[in-house]
Write a protein that binds this DNA or RNA. Structure first.
Lengths: 339, 339
DNA sequence: TAATTCTACGAAAACGTTTTCGAGGTTTTG
DNA sequence: CAAAACCTCGAAAACGTTTTCGTAGAATTA
C-alpha cells in the first residue's frame, strides 16, 4: 500500500532539493560522489522509477505508438500487431490498440482520442466503412498536426504518409497464373466489393493474368461477397453449376468455405477443383485438404510499419517530407489444394 | 503543420488568462456569457482538444488499462482483447497491450514499464514461464502500490486480486461425461504439462469423470505435450496403437492435429473415434470434420475482466479489499466430430 | 453614503519530471 | 593576497491542465 515514490519524497527524506535528487539519479557530476551514492542507494532500495506521465509531458513525447485496426480476431491483423509490438518493444516503445470494428465513426473517435497527446504516431489499417466513404478528413487532421501515420494493407492512396502493402495485383496475377499452369481452364474468383482496396486490386490481378494468357474474362466468374459472416449461401449459389476447375479466393475463409461446399457436392480437391487462397493463416494450415495460399506476411508488415514510424519519429527534422510505399513480397505456399 | 493548440495559446490570442479559458471551456458561471461564447467559438473553430498527458498528470489517472498476455496470435487471446477493448471503450478507457511471448522476463519488464504511471490497472494472463517458476514478485509489487489487477485464464492462486476463469475441472468433467454417454469406452486425453493451470485442471476433470463412472484411470492414456509448435510427432506416437475410441484435447490445435493423424491412419471420425476439444475457435468451425468443442467465451471473459477492473478503479475507496473470482460458464458446442 | 454582496476575472499551486542559471564556499592561480 | 576557477547544490521555469483563492470594480442594501 506504500504510495508511489517521487523525487519530491526522496528529497524530503534525504533533506536535499528535488533537483539534486534528479541529477544524482542521472549520475550528474554536478553532485558530489557522496551525495550521489546516498541518493542512488535510497532510490534503489525503495525501487524508485520515474513517472512516465511526467516524462511524457516534459519531453513532449510519449514513447507510445497507436495502432488502429478493424478487428483483432482476424489472424492477419493479429500477426501485424505481433510484428508492431515486437519492433516497438525493441526500441523502447509501447503499443496502444484501438479497434474500429469496421466502423468509420469509431475510427474517427479513436483517432481523436489518441491524437491528443496519448501517442507519438499511428500505425493503421482503414475500416471498410472508411474505404467505402472515401472520407479521410480525420487522417488529414492528424497529419496536419505533424503527427506521422504509417498505413498498411488497407491504405488511402491520396494521404501523404508512409505505406506498407503487398502488391495485390501482382500476387493475384501470380496465383492465377499458377492455376493456369496447373491446367485449370475455368477459373472463378471469390472476392469482396471493390471499395475494399485489396478486393479490387486482387480482382484486377486476376483479370490481367487471364487476359495476358489470352483467356476471356467473364464477369459472371467473379463473385463479390459483402457479408463475410454469412458467405456460405452466396458461395454455394456461385458454385452450384459446377463449372469451375480452379478457384482463387481473396481470403482463407472464403476458400475453406468453398472447399467444403465443393466436397459436399462430391467434388474432389484438387483433382476436380484446385484452390488458391490469400492469407496464410491457421485455417489454411489445418483445413482438409490444406490450402495453397499466398502468404501476407503480417508479422513482417507490422514490423516494417513500426520501424518506419519510429524512424520518422526520431529523425530530428519533421521537415523530412518524403513518403515511401514499401511493397512486401508475397510468396506462394503450395499445399494440398492444388495439384 | 499547425502546432497543437493549448490553453495558453488561446489565452494569448484572446488576451485573457489561462484560467479564464479553462473555465470558459468548462462552461463555468464564473465567466461572463460574452467571454465564454467568444472563447468557446474560438476553441471550436480551431478544434481545441485538451492534452491527455496533462490531464493524466493532473488527475493522477490515465484512463488507460494495461493488458498483458502471452501471445496475440492465439484466437482465444484475441477474443479476450476484443472483449476488453469493447467494454473499456464504452467506459472511456483505452487499452495498452503488451505481449510476454510466454517469457517471464518480458512479462516483468512490461509490467514495470506500464506500472510507472502509464496505466491505472492491469488485465492479464500469465506466461507459461511464470506459471512454471511460480514467481509472482512482480505482481505483488504492483498490487502493493495499490494498483489493481484482474487476472484471467492463467491465474496465480495466491495473489490477492480479482480473477476471471472458466471452471476447467467441471468443463473437462462434462466433456468426458459426454464422450462416455456417446459410448466411448477407451478415452484418451491430450493435455499440456501440469504447470500450465488449465492443463492441470482439465486433466483433473478428465480423471474425476472417469472415476465417478467407475472407469479406471490409466496415466498412459494422458499425453502431456510441451512443445505446441511440433506437437504432431508426439500425438502420432500417442495414437499409433489405435486403442482410443474417444479423445479429449485441451485446445483445438491438438484436436485437429489428432483428427488428421487418425484420418491418415484410416480411421473415421466420429464413427471410430469421437473428439472433443477445448477452445471454440476458427479451426473447430472449419476443420474437417468440424469439431465439437467447449467454448471458452474469450469475449465474455475479457469484457468481465475490464468491467471488474474499471469498477475497482472508480470505486472511491481503495480500501475495498475484497476480491472476487468469477467463473464463466462453458458450453458444449456439438459438431461433426462426435456422434 | 457607507457597508455589503456580486460579478468577472487573474494569480498561483499542484501533478512529477528535467534543465538552466545563479550563488555560496572552497581551491587554485598569478 | 586578490582574482579566478571550481565544486556543490538549490531555485525556478517549463510541459498543459484544473482548481482554489484573492481582488477590483460594480451593484445592491441599509
Amino acid at each position: 500500500m506504500a504510495q508511489k515514490l517521487t523525487l519530491k519524497k526522496i528529497a524530503q527524506e534525504l533533506k536535499v532539493s528535488i533537483s539534486t535528487v534528479s541529477k544524482a539519479l542521472r549520475d550528474s557530476h554536478e553532485i558530489s560522489v557522496e551525495t550521489r551514492t546516498k541518493i542512488q542507494e535510497y532510490a534503489k532500495q525503495y525501487n524508485f522509477k520515474p513517472n512516465n506521465i511526467a516524462l511524457s509531458l516534459k519531453n513532449q513525447k510519449t514513447k507510445k505508438i497507436g495502432v488502429i485496426i478493424p478487428e483483432i480476431v482476424h489472424h492477419f491483423f493479429a500477426t501485424v500487431i505481433s510484428g508492431v509490438e515486437r519492433v516497438a518493444n525493441e526500441k523502447g516503445y509501447q503499443v496502444i490498440i484501438c479497434l474500429s470494428g469496421e466502423s468509420f465513426d469509431k475510427e474517427v473517435v479513436n483517432m481523436d482520442m489518441l491524437a491528443n497527446g496519448s501517442i507519438d504516431g499511428f500505425v493503421m489499417s482503414l475500416s471498410k466503412e472508411t474505404m467505402e466513404r472515401q472520407d479521410f478528413h480525420h487522417l488529414r487532421e492528424v497529419t496536419n498536426q505533424g503527427m506521422p501515420i504509417v498505413m498498411f494493407d488497407r491504405v488511402a492512396d491520396d494521404i501523404a504518409c508512409d505505406k506498407i502493402i503487398i502488391d495485390d495485383v501482382e500476387a493475384a496475377n501470380k496465383a492465377t497464373d499458377f492455376l493456369l499452369r496447373k491446367n485449370c481452364r475455368n477459373l472463378g474468383l471469390i472476392s469482396t466489393p471493390d471499395y475494399v482496396n485489396v478486393g479490387r486490386l486482387r480482382t484486377q490481378g486476376f483479370k490481367e493474368a487471364l487476359m495476358k494468357r489470352g483467356f476471356e474474362v467473364d464477369d459472371q466468374a467473379i463473385l463479390k461477397v459483402e457479408d463475410i459472416e454469412n458467405c456460405g449461401d452466396k458461395i454455394k449459389a456461385f458454385l452450384t453449376d459446377g463449372k469451375y476447375d480452379g478457384l482463387l479466393a481473396v481470403n482463407e475463409l472464403f476458400a475453406v468455405t468453398a472447399s467444403k461446399i465443393l466436397q459436399g457436392m462430391g467434388k474432389e480437391i484438387p483433382k476436380d477443383v484446385a484452390i488458391v487462397a490469400f492469407t496464410d493463416g491457421m485455417l489454411s494450415k489445418y483445413a482438409s485438404p490444406t490450402l495453397t495460399t499466398i502468404g501476407q506476411k503480417g508479422e513482417e508488415m507490422g514490423g516494417l510499419a513500426a520501424a518506419k514510424l519510429i524512424q520518422k519519429l526520431e529523425s530530428d527534422h519533421q521537415e523530412d517530407e518524403t513518403y515511401e510505399t514499401v511493397i512486401v513480397k508475397t510468396s506462394l505456399i503450395e499445399r494440398e489444394s492444388t495439384p
